[in-house]
Computed example of a mutant assay.
Amino acid sequence: MRLLLLSDTHANQPALEAVLHDAAPRRFDQVIHLGDALGYGPHPREVLNTLRDLNAVCLLGNHEQMLLAYVNSKREIRESVVSAALLWQLGRLSERELAWVRTWRDGIDDPNVGARYRHGTPVSLDAYTDSVPAAREAFARWGGRLGFVGHTHVPAVYATLNAPVGEWVKQQAFPEGGSYLLPPSARVILNPGSVGQPRDGNPHASYAIYDSEHGYFEVFRVPYDVVRTQEAVLAAELPPVLATRLALGR
Rank of each mutant, 00 (worst) to 15 (best):
G107D: 02
A11W: 03
V165E: 15
N191E: 09
G143Q: 07
T9D: 05
P122F: 11
G150K: 06
S206E: 14
S206C: 12
G150F: 03
A134N: 14
H43Q: 13
V165R: 15
S179C: 02
D29F: 00
D109Y: 14
G147F: 00
Q13W: 14
E95Q: 13
G41P: 12
D22T: 13
N162W: 00
G178K: 04
N62C: 06
I32C: 02
N55S: 12
L181I: 00
V149M: 07
L248E: 12
D211M: 01
A15L: 11
L242K: 14
L67F: 08
P111F: 06
E176V: 03
P192G: 07
S179Y: 01
R245P: 04
E167V: 00
I77T: 15
S206R: 03
L93Q: 06
N162D: 14
V71W: 04
H214S: 14
E213Y: 09
L98T: 02
R96I: 02
G201D: 00
V47C: 11
V219A: 01
L182P: 01
R26L: 14
S73A: 15
A235R: 09
A84P: 05
Q171E: 13
F220G: 00
A163T: 14
A205R: 10
E231V: 04
G35M: 04
A23C: 07
S131W: 05
S179N: 01
A134Q: 15
M66L: 14
V195G: 12
P184V: 00
G196V: 02
S206N: 03
E46Y: 01
F217M: 00
G201L: 08
A69W: 10
L48D: 09
P183S: 01
Q65H: 15
L16T: 10
L190F: 04
K170Q: 11
W88T: 09
V82S: 12
L125V: 08
K74Y: 06
Q172H: 10
Q171K: 15
I209V: 06
D8V: 13
L146P: 04
T121I: 10
L3T: 05
G41A: 11
G249S: 05
S124N: 07
V169H: 01
Y128D: 13
T121K: 12
D8C: 11
A186H: 08
L67D: 04
D211A: 03
P155G: 06
A99V: 01
D53W: 06
A163L: 11
L51H: 12
A186K: 03
D126V: 08
H153L: 13
